[in-house]
Amino acid sequence: MTAEKIRVASPLSDEIVAKLRVGTQVLISGVIYSARDAAHRRLVQTLDKGEKLPFDIKGQTIYYMGPSPARPGQVIGSAGPTTSSRLDIFTLRLIEAGLKAMIGKGDRSQAVKEAIKKHKAIYFVAIGGAAALLSKSIEKSELVAYEELGAEAILKLTVVDFPAIVCNGIYGGDLFEQAKAQYHRGG
C-alpha cells in the first residue's frame, strides 16, 4: 500500500465528491452500473426521444466494462475497465441527465473534463487489464437492460472495496497529465 485509501459509498454524495482530489485512491462499495459503447448509444437515443432510461441515472456511477462470461456458480467473469475516451461523445448527455461518477481507463476529452467540473461529477480510473483481480470486488450482478447486447448489456453490480483512483474531479486537474509531468525526463 502506497497511500491511504478512502472508502466511498456509491451512489456518491456531493459531500464525498467534494472531498476527492486528483490522485486520491478510493475503495468503492455499493451499487455501480456497467455500460459500454452500444449501451451508451441506446441510453442517449432514449434521452433524445424523451423516454425513460432503463434505470434512474441520477446520482449513479457507471463502470465502463463488459465482463467475460461467469462460470457456473460464479457472480461474474473477469471485469476490468475499458477505454473511456470512446464514450466521451455520449458522456455530456449522461452527466446532464444526472450521472455522477464514472469508472474506466485512460484519459478523457477536454469537453468531458469541463462537464465533470461544471456538474460536480467525478471520473475514476481502475487498473486496465487487472480484470481477474477486479472481479473479486464484485459481489452481485443483475441484468438491468439490453440483454441482447451480451457482454455489453447494462448490469447492476454490487461492489465491495472496488479499488480506483480519482482522475478528474470538481477542482479540475488530470491524473495522467500530472503523472506525466512528474515523471517525464529529458526533451
Binding site: S68, R71, G77, G129, A130, A131, L133
Partner: peptide, 20 residues
C-alpha cells in the same frame, strides 16, 4: 496488482483480461 492478477487468472481459470 498486475502480477497478482496473473496469479488469480492462472489459479482460478479466469481470463487475465475481460477483453479476451
Amino acid at each position: 496488482r498486475l502480477l497478482e492478477n496473473a496469479q488469480i487468472a492462472k489459479k482460478e481459470l479466469l481470463p487475465l483480461c475481460q477483453d479476451c
